Simulated scan of single mutants.
Amino acid sequence: MKGPDKRVALREAAHWYARLGADQVGADVHQQWSSWHSQDALHQWAWQQVQNLQAQLQGLPGPLAYQAMQQAGTSAALGRRTLLKGLLLGVGAGSLGLYGYREAPVWLADYRTRIGQRQRITLADGTRLILNTASAVDVRFGAEVRLVIVQAGELLIETGKDPRPFVVRSAEGDMRALGTRFTVRQREGITDLSVLEHAVAVRSKKGTDAEQVIEANQRVSFSATQLYSPTAVDPNQAQWANGHLVIDNWRLDRLLAELQRYRPGFVQCSANIAELRLSGAYPLDDTDSALAAIARALPVRIEQRTRYWVRVLPKA
């Protein structure tokens, strides 16, 4: 596939993603999208890249997303709300856009997963990694240090016994394991660390403070310049490694945003039911079953026109 052809296909895929994310979408639009998608393997490739980028950029602040979408030349007629739903997808159409910056290392990573996939890896020192959906890491073991670089997504680490320091590096800083089990999630501009056993020493990339030790059952988020105050770890936080999302009193919109990480396409609910709350366990390997369970638990219905477009609406 040639570079210019890729950029055209990515631009078209971003356009279709924005159209399918609009509040009112007719059956004719879905038919047109399906026709475009099936026309060419390049279109199918571009649509998958759009999905991967969407999963990686869920934490991007709205103003930055809007600015980047405008720079990508997305039609202003779509409106700010629809642009934000696109989550910067139009940037992939530009050769100097964020897509090029983030996606290149992801696809060259030593280990990576697709949307909805998990992967278990045992490293040379006995360390065990579990990569969550749409994740990518590089492994750099040397004589002085064992280094894992998080390019995208989320992983669970159980460190092996070895005298060399074990460090996980994100875009925002380093996390040095102190004989431990922990999870790391790379969001846009933020790293989330949850310590499940023992402790992890954290240092932000540009911060002037010394390492801060995060103890077992603590969770902390940090940027390149700042560590935020630790909070308690959700005891079910790492259940994704077993294929389950276990929640307690979550808002419906939060639950759907999390499920969207595990399926290609667009999932949302109407604003008037976003605050409905749920508890329970939902299968991550079968998100259709998870959506059906939501419809049984709440006075809502699932509207699904293609496998890539789902809305949760009030029950008629």
Rank of each mutant, 00 (worst) to 15 (best):
Q212V: 15
V25Y: 05
N272C: 08
H244L: 15
H30S: 08
I157C: 12
S194P: 02
A290F: 03
A41C: 07
V29M: 15
A293R: 11
D286V: 00
N242I: 00
D40Y: 04
S270C: 09
A72I: 05
P264T: 09
R277Y: 07
P283E: 00
L256A: 13
E172D: 10
A93Y: 06
Q117K: 05
A152I: 05
I214A: 01
C269W: 05
F266E: 08
W309F: 14
P165R: 01
W16R: 04
Q119H: 10
P61H: 02
R185S: 05
G92M: 15
A22P: 03
Q49S: 10
R187Y: 07
G265W: 03
L20N: 03
S229A: 14
T183M: 00
Q304V: 07
A13C: 09
G62F: 03
A232P: 06
D286E: 00
L255M: 15
T287A: 02
E154K: 07
R7L: 15
W250V: 10
M69Y: 00
T306A: 10
G280V: 04
L123K: 02
G243I: 04
P165C: 01
S204M: 03
G59V: 01
L53A: 13
Y308C: 08
L313R: 11
S135P: 02
S279N: 06
S221V: 10
A293I: 04
G207E: 10
L87G: 09
G21N: 09
K205N: 06
Q239D: 15
D23L: 13
T287P: 03
A297I: 04
T191I: 05
K85D: 10
D40N: 14
A281T: 12
P230D: 04
A201G: 09
N272D: 15
E303L: 11
G142W: 02
A143N: 12
A201I: 01
A143W: 01
H198P: 02
Q260K: 12
I149L: 14
D285G: 12
I294K: 02
L196C: 02
E303I: 13
D174A: 02
S170A: 04
A136H: 05
Q304G: 08
A9I: 01
P105W: 10
E188H: 11
Q54Y: 12
G94V: 08
P4S: 09
L84R: 03
N217S: 14
R102V: 14
R203Y: 01
G243C: 04
E215Q: 15
L57K: 00
R112T: 07
